[in-house]
Computed example of a mutant assay.
Amino acid sequence: MEQKISPSKSALPYGILFGIFMVLEFVILYVLNIDPITNPTVGIVVNVLNYLVLPVILIIIGCNNYKKKLNFGFISFGECLKIGVTICLIAGLIYALFSIVFNLIFPEFMDEILKKTRQVMVQKSPEMTSEQLDMAMSMTKKFMSPALVVPVTVVMFSFIGLIYSLIIGAFVKNDKPESF
């Protein structure tokens, strides 16, 4: 009887790599005092990397690794989906947990972000009343709470992994021929 190798064996290292890369990105920007809120070019580059380039590349590599090295040249569409979603889920979980720990260690960071967000809101919408601005800031603060950050980040990255896996799986899949 043939032993089946789990797709998670290929997804786990790439998910951890993706999560670590996002954490390093964040730490480098923090240490160099580069702010994506006030410097939109940096924000765009980081978002393109985290939401487009890295997930696509790592899902392709993870699927091809499973197909060529672990499963004798075969991979089903479902296995591609499992690999892609798992990679992005792990990365999202690592990044969300890191952001919570970071905010516990550096609580002033959250205050800085809220202050800069307020400045950008005033700059972009000078016609906002102070009540509207206060309401927007309170909503922003609620969405930055750990109770929402972790599930939203994990779901968002899992959804991104699902979408990219659907596309990548259509090209990478190579089903094992059925024997009678």
Rank of each mutant, 00 (worst) to 15 (best):
residue 87 I to H: 00
residue 73 G to S: 10
residue 5 I to F: 08
residue 125 S to G: 04
residue 21 F to Q: 11
residue 100 I to F: 10
residue 49 L to T: 09
residue 139 M to L: 15
residue 32 L to I: 02
residue 127 E to P: 05
residue 25 E to I: 02
residue 17 L to K: 02
residue 74 F to C: 02
residue 110 M to F: 07
residue 135 M to E: 14
residue 28 I to N: 03
residue 89 L to F: 14
residue 170 A to V: 13
residue 14 Y to T: 01
residue 150 V to C: 06
residue 17 L to A: 14
residue 60 I to V: 15
residue 157 F to E: 02
residue 169 G to P: 09
residue 61 I to F: 08
residue 119 Q to P: 00
residue 75 I to C: 04
residue 148 L to S: 05
residue 143 F to W: 12
residue 51 Y to C: 06
residue 29 L to S: 12
residue 48 V to D: 07
residue 70 L to G: 07
residue 103 N to P: 02
residue 43 G to Y: 06
residue 7 P to G: 01
residue 133 L to R: 09
residue 72 F to V: 12
residue 162 L to D: 06
residue 103 N to G: 14
residue 9 K to D: 06
residue 102 F to C: 04
residue 33 N to G: 07
residue 68 K to Y: 14
residue 170 A to F: 15
residue 178 E to G: 12
residue 175 D to M: 10
residue 138 S to P: 03
residue 130 S to H: 09
residue 129 T to N: 10
residue 89 L to Q: 00
residue 23 V to R: 09
residue 127 E to M: 11
residue 157 F to T: 09
residue 98 F to I: 00
residue 104 L to S: 08
residue 166 L to I: 11
residue 48 V to K: 02
residue 95 Y to G: 02
residue 92 G to T: 00
residue 32 L to Q: 08
residue 95 Y to I: 01
residue 54 L to N: 06
residue 60 I to Y: 13
residue 148 L to P: 02
residue 110 M to T: 15
residue 153 T to L: 04
residue 64 N to A: 00
residue 53 V to N: 06
residue 13 P to L: 03
residue 14 Y to W: 13
residue 78 G to D: 07
residue 55 P to V: 01
residue 41 T to E: 12
residue 131 E to V: 10
residue 91 A to G: 12
residue 146 P to Y: 06
residue 86 T to C: 03
residue 157 F to L: 08
residue 169 G to E: 08
residue 108 E to I: 06
residue 51 Y to D: 05
residue 61 I to S: 01
residue 26 F to Y: 14
residue 107 P to E: 08
residue 32 L to E: 02
residue 33 N to A: 13
residue 132 Q to E: 15
residue 44 I to P: 03
residue 139 M to N: 13
residue 109 F to G: 08
residue 72 F to R: 15
residue 39 N to M: 11
residue 1 M to G: 15
residue 29 L to D: 07
residue 149 V to R: 09
residue 66 Y to E: 08
residue 162 L to Q: 05
residue 44 I to Q: 08
residue 20 I to Q: 02
residue 64 N to Y: 10
residue 43 G to L: 08
residue 19 G to W: 02
residue 78 G to Y: 05
residue 74 F to A: 03
residue 13 P to A: 03
residue 180 F to P: 09
residue 168 I to A: 04
residue 162 L to A: 13
residue 86 T to F: 06
residue 80 C to F: 03
